[in-house]
Design a protein around this nucleic acid. Structure first.
Length: 363
DNA sequence: CAGGCGTGGAG
DNA sequence: TCTCCAAGCCT
């Protein structure tokens, strides 16, 4: 398929790439260690997340959970707290259960073979390849978005990179390209080129060590690659966030379900609205009336609305503040009253933090 | 396979 | 303000 892959070309590819990497790579915290657990943590954090965002989270996470044992026995609440703001929180839950698996099943030794590694929760083809190559020096491919962008431009590969099949195409090519003895530097170099040189919008081909091999550069078609199917627009959803205080200034919060969006995070009770036009105050009153007719609550509607866009959803959150004067709310175990000061101990996702900021809660 | 799953930065 | 993007994995 790739007719350019003769021995001479392969050697040239490796030499130029590695030479550039030795000279130009960034000094990143996870590049100062070969501890497989640390490499693992960094790779999970880096999934769909930029390096600059990850650095402080990585430092704090490692300092709080310096070994797999400490992460394994920590309360999930605290793990989520350390992940707060990073997004894709299933990564945190899966990382912890993956680490628990490794502690119990493999005596706290991260597996060195691909089969066992891939069976660990939260470890997919990319992360397995990254750990095997970077921590264990094994010549395994680690194909992420950077690698696909770089290689698709060099070899004019026009398959849709959102498809699994396409990732496998790149892995096949890489088994021929990866130098037996320098898989770690090679894989990281390919990603570093993608991040610093072969950028999505403005590739800096003048500085690229592989420019002389790059077929899209020769054609001037760099920006046609990689080929990627367009994403759908986020769907609109409307809610009311109920910020309810009791007479002792305590706030009502509830825990989200253990599966799905923002799983296990805390929030001010969110009521679904049928459409954006509905009156939030009306929705709230009817909800609490139905629950308990003896409640006396003073309601104030905030003029402001929080909007928050996820990968696939756009939330419109109306805010209603209330004070419970009389009556008792029947609370399930997913709800509780807590002081404003205690809020800091609980993990809250960004849309809820926006609500706090609007109603003047210090978090 | 397609769709669910966050957030912040860049243009 | 909006679009696209960033070291993907799970179901």
């Amino acid at each position: 398929m790739i007719d350019m892959l003769n021995a001479e070309m392969i050697t040239g590819f490796q030499e130029h790439l590695l030479h550039w990497y030795r000279k130009n790579h960034r000094d990143l915290p996870w590049r100062r260690t070969s501890n497989p657990y640390y490499i693992w943590v960094s790779e999970v954090m880096l999934q769909q997340t930029q390096v600059d965002t990850v650095i402080p989270y990585y430092e704090e996470f490692i300092s709080r959970f310096p070994t797999m044992h400490e992460l394994a026995r920590a309360p999930q609440e605290e793990v989520l707290k350390r992940w707060e703001g990073l997004g894709y929180y299933s990564r945190a839950r899966n990382l912890q259960s993956g680490v628990q698996e490794v502690v119990e099943k493999y005596n706290a030794k991260v597996p060195e073979n691909k089969k066992d590694l891939l069976s660990v929760k939260g470890v997919g083809p990319y992360t397995a390849g990254a750990i095997l190559s970077i921590a264990y020096q094994k010549p395994e491919p680690a194909v992420d978005g950077n690698v696909m962008r770089v290689l698709s431009r060099i070899f004019l590969i026009d398959e849709d990179i959102t498809k699994v099949k396409t990732r496998q195409t790149f892995e096949t090519i890489l088994y021929d390209l990866i130098p037996e003895m320098e898989a770690s530097a090679f894989n990281q170099a390919l990603m570093e080129i993608g991040a610093l040189i072969c950028k999505p919008k403005g590739p800096i081909c003048e500085e690229c060590p592989l420019a002389h091999l790059c077929r899209s550069k020769a054609e001037g078609t760099q920006l046609h690659y990689p080929v990627k199917k367009k994403k759908m627009k986020p769907k609109d959803e409307a809610f009311v966030a109920v910020v309810l205080k009791d007479t002792q200034e305590k706030l009502l919060i509830q825990k989200r379900p253990e599966k799905g969006l923002l799983a296990n995070f805390w929030e001010f009770p969110l009521l679904e609205m049928s459409d954006t036009q509905e009156d939030p105050l009306k929705v709230v009153k009817s909800y609490f009336n139905k629950k308990n007719h003896d409640l006396i609550i003073e309601w104030t509607k905030s003029e402001q609305t929080v909007t928050h866009t996820f990968s696939h959803l756009k939330w419109h959150v109306n805010i209603v503040v209330g004070t419970l004067r009389e009556g008792t709310l029947n609370l399930g175990k997913m709800s509780q009253w807590i002081s404003e000061k205690a809020l800091k101990e609980y993990p809250f996702p960004v849309p809820q933090q926006k609500v706090m900021s609007i109603v003047g809660i210090d978090y």
